[in-house]
């Protein structure tokens, strides 16, 4: 995973709440066995509507997505994160982001930014008024800045480190092999083993 420190750029004002993972990437795209090739499936159904914001040329090249509450709810499909990243998004800003999506995002270097609903509304208004508005998400400072808006977002220290250093989490865990092996000697004997 590539380290992620600062993302600065224009934003896509999606706005709506409860954007579920089936909207981000519909299930038929999940037949692929690769990690790539998902960008054409991003918001596939909504994109058929010419007035959908992703079809608005003014927002072409945006790398920050701004959405309503409960973004990324539903399935555990990491493909939702892959599709957003492939389409150029590097941060998602919303009042609340679903747990599994948030975890998947961090592991791929997509920054999940939860801000107060009124702050998100101000960012949306700014971007809708002027598509060229530049928003900066800073992982080091845990802040979001735009003209007239400055806000902090929560990000636990270890998640911040994960983003900043782009660590191989499996390699980190395998350093604790002795702890894992010791734990395994203490497990209850009745616990099932698949035969």
């Amino acid at each position: 995973m590539e380290p992620t420190r600062v993302v600065s750029g224009r934003a896509l004002p999606l706005g709506r709440a409860n954007v579920d993972t089936d909207q981000i990437i519909p299930s038929h795209w999940l037949k692929r066995i690769e990690r790539t090739g998902y960008a054409p499936g991003l918001f596939e159904a909504w994109r058929k509507d010419p007035s959908f914001v992703l079809n608005d040329d003014r927002y072409r090249g945006a790398n920050i997505l701004i959405a309503g509450a409960n973004f990324g709810g539903g399935s555990s499909r990491e493909h939702a994160v892959w599709a957003l990243q492939e389409a150029g998004f590097r941060a998602v800003i919303a009042p609340t982001i679903a747990d599994i999506f948030k975890s998947n995002a961090i592991k791929n270097g997509l920054i999940p930014v939860e801000l107060r609903a009124d702050t998100v509304s101000r960012l949306l208004a700014a971007v809708e008024a002027d598509a060229k508005t530049v928003i900066t998400v800073d992982v080091v400072l845990r802040t979001v800045a735009a003209p007239g808006v400055k806000a902090s977002f929560p990000l636990a220290g270890f998640l911040q480190t994960q983003l900043l250093e782009g660590l191989d989490e499996i390699a980190l865990t395998l350093r604790h092999e002795a702890d894992i092996a010791a734990f395994e000697t203490k497990r209850a004997e009745w616990l099932p083993r698949v035969r």
């Binding site: 499909r77 599994i100 592991k107 395994e184």
Partner: peptide, 20 residues
Amino acid sequence: WGIGTSEIEHVLATQTIAQT
């Protein structure tokens, strides 16, 4: 609980998962 594909790989390799 449900996990993403990166976590699947982690569990396959380590039989553990880092969770808050």
